[in-house]
Structure formats: C-alpha cells, structure tokens
Computed example of a mutant assay.
Amino acid sequence: MSRDRKGSRSGPEEKRLQGHWLLATMGKTVLRPGGLEMTEALLEHARPLPGETVVEFGPGVGRTARLLLGTSPARYIGVDPNPEGAPALRKVLADFPHVSTRVVTADAKSTGLPDESADVVIGEAMLTMMNPRDKVAIIAEAARILKPGGRYVVHEMGLAPEDIDPDTAAELQKEISRTVKVGARPSTMDQWRALLTEAGFSIRFAHQNPMNLLEPRRVLADEGLLGTARIAKNMIVNPAGRHRMLTMRAVFRKYGEHLCGVGFVATASKG
C-alpha cells in the first residue's frame, strides 16, 4: 500500500493530517488548548509595547499574530519550519503595513536570530508536541534571543491533577497522540513551571483554563458566529474531516478531567 512522504497510509488527506492542520483545514483559526481567552489573558500580562520586537514560534494561520500586531510592535518575526500556514499568515501580516514583519523558515530550536534581539517571545501549542530534549532546546532558544527582562509567553496542554496517576497519564498521552497523529506530551502545571525556571526564567504569571477546544461553546467564543458557521458547513460537506474532528473531541472528552490549557508569562534573567 502506498504511503505519503510522512509515512502515513494513502487515502483522504483528512485521515493523514496532523490534528492542528486538520482543524485549520476545517476552518478553525484558534488552535490553542486554553482558547482565545487564555491567549488574551497571557498577552495582557506580558504587555507587548509599541516599538518592541516580538517573535512568535509556530504562528500557524496567524490568529495570535493579529493580536500581537495590534499592539504596534516595531518588528514582528514569525518562526515556523512548516509552510502550511504561511499563506494565511502573510495575509494577516499584510494588514499591518506600518509594522516591519518577516517570516523565518526555521526550527524553534535554532532560529538563527541574534542574541538578545527580542522583547517578547511567544509559543503556543508546540512544546506539548515535542520530546523532552526538544522542549528544553526550544525554551533555551527563547532565553537566548530575549533581551534581559524580556517576556516569554507559553500556552500549552496541561495535565491535572499534579499527582495524576502515571498509568493514566501514559494512556492519555498514547491515545491523544494516535488521534491527532503527532506525539503529544502534556505536563502538569508544576512540570511546565520547572522547565521554565530551570532555563533561568522567573514566572510572573500563571494561568489555567479548561481544555474545551472542540466544545460548541468554546468554538463559538473563539471563532465567532460566522467562523462557527463556516466550520459547521465544512463538517457537512467534508465527511472525512467531520469524522476526524468528532473523534478528536470524543478523546478530549474522555480525558476531560485530566486535560487543561496552561499558560505562563516568564521573564528572562537579567544576568
């Protein structure tokens, strides 16, 4: 049986796409575990200021980029090794001609950006999908490119409670990874906090939200009436995509008591 370049079996594209790109294909623009509400809360505490330089790891289709560009930074730099979201992101960037913007095709572990060149670095829903070594490398890269006192915004999938049974956590991780077709390694709030502090960051704000990414009320809050209608239409006309979305939602519901969105605003060491 033939396989695509990523090793998945041939068939409808919707069966092969990683979860976040499947959702984007179906019209979902907010792809963050804690929803738009959490992203806005994190940015409120990170306080990007006019004239600053903002770097976003994994900007995807540009929903958070639009929020960041609305703060009138001097420079916005998106760093993403994947080309899938680039067309949508560039449309967002075009709406802010007064801001110097660019998209760097690079891995977040090695951006190629200068030391101490950013005031704010933000990464959402990406560290969860990394192995432990890569998580540490990406956080270290954020520390390297941030100016002293710069802010690192992290928005990821979390586990609860802190003393979650290890067997339950392993089962959850395995089933979610199989469903979204990419390795998912959510961590507890304390585990995420430890990763940041071990890299030299000081936590200035921490937040937790329910993991309701595909629940109707959250979809409406994140996407608005028109966006929700667009997703509903796509689910009608795209049976394979609808099946994947409903399967993902079923798994999220199954482990609902143990899943959450977690977010931090951390300050880079001043040396």
Rank of each mutant, 00 (worst) to 15 (best):
E198T: 12
R217H: 15
M248L: 10
E13L: 14
L195Y: 15
A24L: 08
A94L: 04
E198K: 12
V103E: 12
V237I: 13
R218A: 09
L220K: 09
S10D: 13
D119W: 01
V180W: 00
S100L: 14
P12H: 04
I231G: 06
G60M: 07
M157R: 11
E14C: 06
K174H: 12
E171F: 11
E141R: 01
V180E: 00
L127R: 06
G123Y: 09
M157L: 11
A160S: 13
L113H: 02
H155P: 06
A65F: 03
A221C: 10
L172R: 00
H243V: 14
G112C: 00
V61Q: 04
K135G: 04
L259S: 01
V54R: 05
S117Q: 05
M211D: 10
R185I: 10
V55L: 10
M157W: 09
M38E: 13
D167P: 08
Q173D: 09
P148H: 04
D115T: 09
R47S: 14
L226I: 15
E116H: 13
I164Q: 00
S202D: 10
L69N: 06
R66P: 05
M189I: 15
G11I: 01
E124H: 02
A170F: 10
M211F: 12
V237Q: 07
S269I: 11
T247S: 13
A142R: 02
M248G: 07
A232R: 11
K6P: 08
D190S: 15
V120A: 04
R63L: 15
G11M: 03
P50K: 02
H45I: 09
G35S: 09
L93D: 01
R249H: 10
M26Q: 08
D134N: 11
R75T: 13
E52T: 11
T111K: 01
D163A: 08
T71L: 06
L172F: 03
E156L: 03
P48C: 04
E124V: 00
M26T: 08
I236P: 09
K254A: 05
L93R: 01
R102C: 03
R178S: 14
A46Q: 01
P83T: 04
P114T: 08
T105Q: 10
L36F: 11
E198D: 14
G60A: 07
Q208F: 01
A250R: 09
L146N: 03
L159A: 00
E44K: 13
L225F: 15
T53H: 08
T179H: 02
I236N: 14
R102H: 05
Q191L: 10
T247I: 08
E175C: 09
R75Y: 08
P210C: 00
I138C: 14
G241T: 07
A65I: 03
S2F: 12
E175L: 07
V103I: 13
G256W: 02
G60I: 07
F96E: 02
A184V: 15
A118D: 02
A250F: 06
S10L: 15
V104H: 00
E14Q: 10
A108P: 06
D95I: 07
S8V: 15
R75W: 07
R47H: 08
L213M: 09
N131I: 14
P161F: 02
D107N: 07
R90D: 11
P216M: 02
T267P: 10
Q18D: 14
G34E: 02
K233G: 12
A206S: 13
L159E: 00
E215D: 13
Y76A: 05
